[in-house]
């Protein structure tokens, strides 16, 4: 059976629970710090898959209640869109 630690919790960047726990252990105690080191929450899913799990791990490590853990920043656009669509309102290039 797969160990809990080996579970990939961020599919965009293939980060395991073990990696998250190890960086929290090194003293990185905020979602925004882990995001800057591991890119969790920076991928196409914007943290939809991993954020809650990581916040729970942070709550466990710091002994703070879950609702006191800063969930970090979520940036637009919320869904990835093609550059051509941003520029020309359609996907192909106009030149």
């Amino acid at each position: 059976m797969m160990k809990e630690d080996d579970v990939i919790i961020c599919r965009c960047e293939e980060i395991t629970l073990e990696e998250i726990r190890s960086w929290i252990g090194k003293g990185y105690r905020h979602f925004d710090e882990l995001k800057r080191i591991l890119r969790v929450g920076m991928g196409p899913c914007q943290g939809r898959g991993c954020r809650d799990i990581i916040l729970r791990e942070l709550a466990k490590a710091t002994g703070e209640p879950l609702d006191k853990i800063d969930p970090g920043t979520i940036r637009p656009p919320v869904k990835p869109i093609k550059l051509g669509l941003c520029a020309y309102g359609k996907e192909g290039s106009s030149i």
């Binding site: 920076m42 991928g43 196409p44 914007q46 940036r75 637009p76 656009p77 990835p80 869109i81 093609k82 550059l83 051509g84 941003c86 520029a87 020309y88 996907e91 192909g92 290039s93 030149i95």
Partner: peptide
């Protein structure tokens, strides 16, 4: 910003038109 920058950059490197923007800051 999103519209202005993509219009400008895609002119110089058109091959990126099909690539997706993930976010801005």
């Amino acid at each position: 910003f999103l519209e202005g920058v993509t219009k400008s950059v895609l002119q110089r490197i058109p091959a990126l038109a099909g690539v997706r923007v993930i976010h801005q800051w």
